[in-house]
Computed example of a mutant assay.
Amino acid sequence: MNALATSVPPLSPAPTTCSRRSQPSSPATPPSPEYADPPLVISPAPDLLATLHRLAELAVLKQELDNASMASQTSKAAVLRVEYETNYRAIEQAISAWEPRLPFGYTLANRIVDGPPDASETDVARARCDAGRALAYKHGALVMLLRLSGAANTGTGTAQVQEAVVRHAQSAIWYCVAASTTAGMQGPGDRSVSGAGLLWPLLLGASEVTEPRDRGMARQAFSAVETAFRGSVNLGRAWELVLEVWRRRDLAAVGDGQCPDPGSTGWRRVADEMGVSLVFG
């Protein structure tokens, strides 16, 4: 998670997707909603976690490509560009196609996970929390991909790209609210992941939105995460960072170009200037 947030090479190897959670269910042997594997930051989604690991590596590759281009290293840049574009398309396809694997008998429709009639409220809440957390990462990753594409890096991309960025940012924020709200319905012992696990998609999503309604949803998301995971992460500092990003985006929208739009990746520069250090994993 730190690699995704900071665009540094991941320290750990890519996780395997061979997991009991990722095996197809059988009506004859329905799996328990309880997951036997050790909890992940976005559990139960080891297949998505592997793709996010590749996304973190792609961000590093993009930096190498940009550096080679700026240094007029034509041959090196050409090789890196082919590698980057190939990996970009593969990762984009994998993330776009990904859907959460739910326990047997559970369904996902209109953003809501529902369980079978005999499922307990706690089991349904856990399934909703797990799916919401993973889907927040899915849409946060799509925001990051669109920014990496270069068309929206300065907030001046095409209308279609910017519309897609905002759409996925809205979804990331919505799922952060959903995951936090349902986490509060579980017992204290069932909360396998802290609020820090939601900070990356929440920060990416909140940094993108400009409309009052969307920013209101971001406020709700920060409040929900703080309520569900009180004491697990310094959300107050993260919220101060988002407010500063919004201030600079608003100034950029009405200014004379002297205050550039920080965009979703620009929050890191804003955080450095504010002296804010955040833990994401």
Rank of each mutant, 00 (worst) to 15 (best):
W246T: 07
G155M: 01
A252D: 08
W200E: 14
T158E: 15
E226K: 03
S149C: 12
V193G: 10
R215E: 13
L243F: 07
A141Y: 13
G155R: 00
H139M: 09
R247C: 04
V242A: 00
A131P: 03
S180T: 01
L135P: 11
G187A: 11
R213L: 14
T158M: 07
A228K: 02
E211L: 12
W200I: 15
A136C: 10
P188R: 00
V165N: 08
A221G: 03
W246G: 00
V209L: 03
T154K: 08
A164M: 05
A228N: 05
L142N: 11
L148V: 01
Q220S: 15
G197I: 01
A169E: 08
L235S: 04
E240K: 10
V225G: 10
V245R: 04
G140N: 06
G189C: 08
T181R: 09
Q160W: 01
W239P: 09
E208G: 03
G236D: 14
W239H: 13
S192T: 15
A206M: 09
R215A: 03
A218W: 10
T158H: 06
P188C: 01
R215L: 07
S171A: 12
V225R: 04
L148D: 02
D214W: 12
S149N: 15
H139I: 02
A164P: 05
V225Q: 09
L145I: 13
M185F: 07
L142F: 13
H139Y: 14
A252L: 04
V233L: 07
A179D: 09
Q186H: 03
A127H: 11
R191Y: 12
Y175G: 02
A178S: 12
T210H: 07
A221Y: 05
G236H: 05
I173N: 04
P212Y: 09
S194N: 10
A179K: 06
G184Q: 05
P188L: 02
A131S: 14
A238S: 03
A228E: 07
F222Q: 06
L148M: 13
G157N: 04
L142C: 05
K138C: 07
D123Y: 03
G132S: 02
S171V: 09
A206T: 11
R237I: 05
D123R: 08
E163Y: 00
Y175E: 06
G195D: 06
L148S: 02
L145R: 06
V143A: 00
G187K: 06
S149K: 08
R249V: 11
A178H: 11
A127T: 09
P188V: 02
L199C: 01
V166I: 14
G155Y: 03
V166C: 09
L135T: 07
M217Y: 07
A159R: 12
G231A: 02
C129L: 11
G150H: 05
A238T: 01
L251V: 12
E211H: 15
A125E: 14
R237F: 06
I173P: 07
R126S: 13
L204R: 03
G195L: 00
T227L: 11
S149D: 15
W239Q: 15
A172C: 00
R219C: 04
V193I: 10
L142H: 10
L203H: 05
G184N: 03
R147A: 15
A206P: 07
N234W: 01
G155W: 01
S207P: 06
T227A: 15
S180K: 00
A127N: 11
